[in-house]
Design a protein around this nucleic acid. Structure first.
Length: 935
DNA sequence: GTGTGGTACGAGGCTTTGTCAACC
DNA sequence: AGGTTGACTTTGCCTCGTACCACA
């Protein structure tokens, strides 16, 4: 390729607009290659093996019609000529973006090595390294939110079931019966202090143990009884027992649970698991720490030799199990191959049994899930249940040994979260930290505990956190750290009592900014909780007197989901005036009424406390937390249209940036935008902020300003609320409507109407104003985006008040006239069409008579043949000259084949006239009739 | 190993005031 | 000749959320 040709190419590339950036790249690469620089760039970028070799002929050929390649012959200097000739052509060609691999190694003339040009595409190592980012679509986000909400509702229902079980009188009585007398006596003081609860918690901790032998699975209620009997149970059961105990001792107690709900963000679990590696691995919604479904009763009992303790622990800590275990994978495969008919039969029954097995299988599954891409939680749930069923059957034949091996193989992976929790525990171990008495394996995320109302705490009383299982009293500050260590988010902490529920997350979560985005829309959540809150406040001493059916101790629920939930009265089913609540029922009426009045205050006080916490959140330590913080802000993270006004007070500093209250953040808008709100900028106010104009507008402005050289446009002036006053538009004077520069009035709202004018939103009203020569302005009410651009939408006109009536009156007349005209037009059209129809019928009949040899003519669709007496509806007001024809002409209907040669005669005395429909019916003695509409 | 700050980038929201040719 | 109609083409910036990287 000659230098001249190359220069030409370069010139053309330079001259080309920015629209062809990629084209430039291609061509420049070509240039450098052609001039012998061979394109080995020394910019440190990795040269990948995407080498394209083609001769200069093909270089052209590729850019032109490939079919032409065969016919073209280029030899020696001939190329240059052809190149020049095709210069213009190349300009017109749209270069395709193509991958280098497609080009491959192109060589039309293998022997022609001289003309070979080698281009090596360099590729940034970054681009190869960076994984393609697939972001969730709006639909996926919506679905995730839906799952989140449903899961929340399920967990709320679960909490109510547990709360209901805690009220069981038999369980409470049993607990009291095993409680040493001296402990029950310690609560004699009417002013209860948190300290007084410590011996109780200690006793409970010593007498009840987490998850020893796994008993048969059953409803929660019976599981609770069983746990009480054996003094061993799951964390959930033990926490519930502790609540029952406190309630038995007539302490106002709530059952508190962290609702460990499926993430509100799509694939959050996946990302979490990928980043965290261990905890929270791929838990489906039915495999979270909080079990939602009670285990069916009719499940098989696992082999006694099985290390149930460990199994249970794994189940409780749920997510702590690693999913990396190779043993799991191999074993699961084995299990799958053992899918025998009994296993299939049991599938339905085995739901939610053997959580630990499920966990392991899920773990295995999650590995495959990664490769399969994202699956919905519902699918996972189904698969998990299937796997659980299979594995539960198969595991019965598994040896205990195998499980132990598995456990030990897992232990290395499992260790890290436990290390973390141990670290936390050590930090706090001086007094009451997370108890390690049960051994490190038994430490899991705090998911359940009790809240006991201690009237002796503070001045006003206080809900005291009591985790009797871990022997922790008043440890609300430790919950967040412990949950953090186990990667459990404190998104929702809900206290249950009296079949109601109350969100008490604020009491336990100090870093609200971390969970705020993970919580569901507060409006929805508040609406869901509203009836439950009423119940809760009623039970813990609120104003409402609500009845709750006592659990029948003998009535063990066979299926809690089916019967248990239906047993629980929903808030709106409860009579509001029936007085037999659990709490108050235990005391006499006088006491109860007195307590209620106090408790109403108690509830309010708690609300205030939670509100106070919400407003006094500690300052976050990282900058980015201030980006959307509800309470605090730093200037750095304000958006383009925000400003601090007033700039103070400074609440603290974060990384050297002063922290201001969020209340100081004001939204700024342009003058025009404020106009839409019916506000205008005060005179002599300087813009609060000046920001760069968007490129699009700038472009327009620059093109306008080009003639004038330099311009200071390209900026947008923004004003704040404090710089505004109510809009004062010019008054309408002398019947003239004040208009904007476009000769119209922007009617964003009523506030935008100039005083003395009115907006008439009527179609075609401007004709009237025009005809009456009244001044008006088209009312622009908004924009719509059409064909890639915004188009103003007009609706009606703006006129001065004094003309309103005149215009409306004229408009009514005009519309009446219009209607009449339209009616007339329609009628004329109808007549014309009837005439055409009848003419064609007649013509057809005549032709048929003349040439059809008596063949049956086709029946026109408008002619009705009923009982061989066709009625033809004929318009009688034919155009002059035609009417007679139409009347006099023979109207041989199809049935006339029966009455050949008959000519209808419509005698006047045989006619009838219907006043209502203006229809005249004419009859021939043969039975033929014709209906004529007289207009 | 973990947390933090900075950067890059996709998704979604907000923005917003014609032209020309054929036809009647 | 002048008015009406319909086709044309499918913005582009900003914010938010978050993945990723470097660094402490």
């Amino acid at each position: 390729m000659s230098n001249e040709a190359v220069d030409k190419l370069v010139r053309r590339v330079k001259g080309r607009g920015s629209s062809g950036k990629k084209k430039q790249d291609n061509r420049l690469q070509c240039d450098s290659a052609a001039t012998g620089e061979n394109g080995l760039k020394s910019n440190g970028k990795q040269v990948v093996d995407a080498r394209v070799t083609w001769n200069d002929l093909d270089a052209r050929g590729l850019a032109q019609d490939p079919a032409a390649n065969d016919t073209r012959e280029v030899e020696g200097g001939g190329f240059q000529t052809t190149f020049q000739e095709s210069d213009q052509e190349m300009d017109d060609i749209d270069w395709e973006d193509g991958s280098s691999s497609i080009l491959g190694h192109v060589k039309n003339h293998p022997g022609d090595g001289i003309r070979e040009v080698t281009i090596e595409f360099s590729e940034s190592p970054d681009s190869a390294k960076r994984k393609p980012i697939r972001r969730a679509t709006a639909e996926e986000k919506g679905l995730a939110e839906l799952v989140h909400k449903v899961h929340l509702l399920c967990l709320l229902a679960r909490g109510r079931i547990i709360d209901h079980a805690c009220d069981d009188p038999l369980i409470q009585a049993s607990l009291l019966s095993i409680l040493p007398a001296h402990l029950s006596n310690t609560l004699g003081d009417p002013k209860l202090h948190a300290k007084a609860l410590s011996p109780l918690a200690h006793w409970f901790h010593n007498n009840f143990h987490v998850a020893s032998s796994v008993s048969e699975k059953r409803s929660f209620h019976s599981a609770l009884s069983c746990a009480l009997e054996t003094r061993e149970g799951t964390l959930e059961e033990l926490a519930a027992l502790s609540v029952a105990l406190f309630r038995a001792l007539k302490l106002t107690t709530r059952f508190v649970s962290i609702l460990d709900v499926a993430s509100i963000k799509p694939d959050a679990d996946k990302y979490e698991s990928l980043s965290q590696g261990t905890s929270k691995m791929h838990r489906g919604i039915f495999n979270t720490s909080t079990l939602m479904v009670d285990r069916p009763k009719e499940v098989f009992i696992p082999p006694k030799s099985l290390s149930c303790n460990e199994k249970k622990n794994v189940a409780e800590t749920s997510s702590k199990t690693s999913c990396k275990s190779k043993d799991n994978c191999s074993r699961s495969k084995k299990i799958q191959s053992n899918d025998s008919p009994p296993a299939v039969e049991l599938k339905d029954k085995m739901v939610d049994t053997f959580p630990c097995e499920a966990q392991n299988n899920t773990s295995e599954e999650c590995v495959t899930k990664k490769s399969q891409g994202s699956k919905r939680k519902g699918d996972l749930e189904f698969e998990m249940q299937l796997q659980m069923a299979m594995s539960a059957t198969a595991v019965a034949t598994q040896s205990n040994k195998e499980l132990d091996v598995k456990e030990s193989s897992n232990s290395s992976d499992v260790s890290s979260p436990f290390k973390r929790i141990r670290k936390i525990a050590n930090e706090e171990s001086s007094s009451q930290g997370i108890s390690t008495a049960l051994g490190s394996r038994k430490i899991g995320s705090p998911l359940y505990w009790a809240e006991v109302y201690c009237s002796g705490e503070n001045l006003t009383g206080k809900w005291v956190h009591v985790d009797a299982v871990h022997d922790i009293v008043d440890g609300e500050q430790k919950v967040e750290a412990a949950a953090d260590a186990c990667k459990t988010s404190l998104r929702y902490v809900v206290a249950f009592a009296g079949l109601g529920a109350k969100d008490v997350t604020r009491r336990y979560c100090m870093k609200w900014y971390k969970i705020a985005s993970q919580r569901v829309n507060s409006l929805w959540w508040d609406a869901v909780l509203a009836p439950l809150r009423e119940l809760e406040s009623g039970a813990t001493g609120g104003m409402a007197h609500l009845e709750k059916p006592h659990a029948d101790a003998s009535n063990e629920h066979e299926n809690v989901i089916a019967s248990g939930l239906s047993d629980l009265p929903m808030p709106n089913e409860l009579p509001s005036n029936v007085d037999l609540p659990k709490e108050s029922g235990r005391k006499n009426d006088v006491e109860s009424s007195g307590r209620n009045s106090f408790a109403a205050t108690r509830n309010t006080i708690e609300d205030m406390e939670l509100q106070t916490r919400a407003l006094t959140e500690p300052l976050p330590t990282n900058q980015q937390a201030y980006k959307n913080h509800l309470l605090y802000a730093i200037e750095k993270w304000l958006t383009k249209c925000q400003i601090l006004h007033p700039k103070g007070p400074i609440l603290g500093f974060c990384s050297g940036h002063p922290v201001y209250p969020r209340a100081c953040v004001q939204t700024l808008r342009t003058k025009e935008r404020w106009l839409r709100e019916g506000l205008q900028v005060k005179v002599k106010e300087l813009p609060a902020k000046v920001v760069k104009q968007s490129g699009k507008l700038k472009k327009v402005q620059f093109s306008e300003d080009d003639d004038y050289g330099e311009t200071d446009s390209g900026v947008v002036e923004l004003y704040g609320m404090w710089q505004l006053e109510p809009l004062q538009l010019p008054h309408a004077v002398n019947g003239i409507v004040p208009k904007n520069e476009r000769g119209q009035v922007d009617v964003w709202s009523e506030k935008c109407l100039p005083p003395g004018t009115v907006h008439l939103r009527l179609p075609r009203v401007f004709y009237v104003a025009k005809r009456l020569e009244i001044d008006y302005a088209p009312a622009m009410v908004g924009f719509e985006f059409r064909n890639g651009r915004s188009v103003p939408v007009f609706d009606g006109i703006v006129v001065c008040n004094e003309f309103k009536d005149a215009i409306l009156e004229a408009y009514a007349e005009e519309e009446e006239r219009r209607d009449a005209e339209e009616k007339k037009r329609n009628e004329a059209q109808a007549i014309s069409r009837w005439y055409q129809l009848l003419s064609s019928i007649i013509t057809r009949q005549r032709l048929n008579n003349s040439y059809g040899n008596g063949l049956l003519p086709q029946m026109p669709s408008n002619v009705q043949n009923t009982n061989n007496q066709p009625d033809v509806h004929v318009g009688s007001t034919q155009p002059p000259g035609h009417q007679k024809d139409a009347k006099d002409r023979k109207l041989n209907a199809p049935s006339m084949t029966l009455t050949d040669d008959h000519e209808h005669v419509f005698l006047v005395e045989d006619q009838s006239f219907d006043e209502e429909t203006s229809t005249r019916t004419k009859r021939c003695h043969c039975g033929f009739s014709v209906q004529v509409e007289e207009l």
